[in-house]
């Protein structure tokens, strides 16, 4: 038996909204320690890694580890029915064929129960190596989101350069070229704050289309951490009370 009670159901709604355009069918691994998933997008350019710690749920029980194959598309449809203030219970019997979702209103005035049919999916687990990164950028997630969105109007590729003092977001398109440079600072304003941890200067190119999809997770966390090393996938990490959501994106390579 697996059962997890989440008092703040909104966070689960936000998580699923943040991944549904990247991955449509995924295996959730449930253990006594965590609910986790790892899934690549269809074009094998991006990877989503989610961990929700058991200890952060109001109630959590997992008698034996289980893989739950879930249609994210359909889960998102059901979660739309849950109110933002609702608590959410996730429940599955051992060797389950359905995932039960129970949404309960704040004052217990309304309870919705749905059984989502589970899928049998090929599990495809990538061995992600432990990696020391050349540069780590911690900044406001909404500011990063805004920069990516605005630069998308110029072109589809973001050139990201980080040195010890600043991070530069540069684009080059048919209409012209441009860049936004932010200097490391410890401003009290969360929008301006930028922390750099750089051992080596890095300059890499990424598809803005994917970064814009990742940035849907900015509603989960005020900060995003970008980890960069030459010629390896960038990691965008959004940490929140319940756990963390990480996105890996393969770089573009100059022809």
């Amino acid at each position: 038996m697996f059962e997890a009670l989440l008092g703040n159901g909104l966070i689960l709604k936000k998580i699923i909204e943040s991944i549904k355009e990247l991955v449509t069918e995924v295996n959730f691994e449930v253990t006594s320690e965590a609910i986790s998933l790892q899934a690549m997008d269809a074009s094998h350019v991006a990877l989503v890694v989610l961990v929700l710690r058991a200890s952060e749920f109001e109630e959590y029980r997992c008698d034996r580890p289980q893989t739950l194959g879930v249609s994210i598309t359909n889960l998102a449809k059901l979660l739309k029915i849950a109110g933002n203030d609702d608590s959410i219970i996730l429940r599955a019997e051992d060797e389950a064929h359905v995932l039960t979702l129970v949404f309960t209103g704040k004052n217990n005035e309304k309870m919705c129960e749905f059984n989502l049919n589970l899928l049998t999916l090929d599990s495809e687990h990538l061995g992600i190596p432990e990696q020391e990164y050349s540069a780590e950028v911690t900044m406001s997630s909404s500011e990063f989101s805004r920069i990516c969105r605005e630069l998308t109007q110029v072109t589809d590729t973001l050139n990201l350069s980080v040195d010890k003092e600043s991070v530069k977001f540069a684009v080059s398109g048919d209409i012209g070229t441009g860049s936004i440079t932010m200097k490391a600072n410890n401003s009290d304003k969360s929008e301006e704050k930028l922390i750099l941890n750089v051992s080596d200067t890095v300059s890499m190119a990424f598809a803005l289309r994917y970064l814009n999809l990742f940035n849907k997770a900015s509603s989960l966390s005020d900060e995003v951490v970008l980890s960069l090393s030459p010629e390896v996938p960038v990691v965008l990490k959004f940490a929140f009370d319940l756990g963390e959501l990480k996105y890996f994106l393969a770089p573009k390579i100059a022809e």
């Binding site: 690549m40 094998h44 350019v45 991006a46 990877l47 495809e124 687990h125 990538l126 061995g127 992600i128 190596p129 590729t157 190119a205 598809a207 390896v232 996938p233 890996f248 393969a250 770089p251 573009k252 390579i253 100059a254 022809e255």
Partner: peptide
């Protein structure tokens, strides 16, 4: 132009 790399090139596929 930049060529898009595949994630599979970076991670072992187990």
């Amino acid at each position: 132009a930049n060529e898009q790399a595949s994630l599979r090139r970076f991670f072992d596929h187990i």
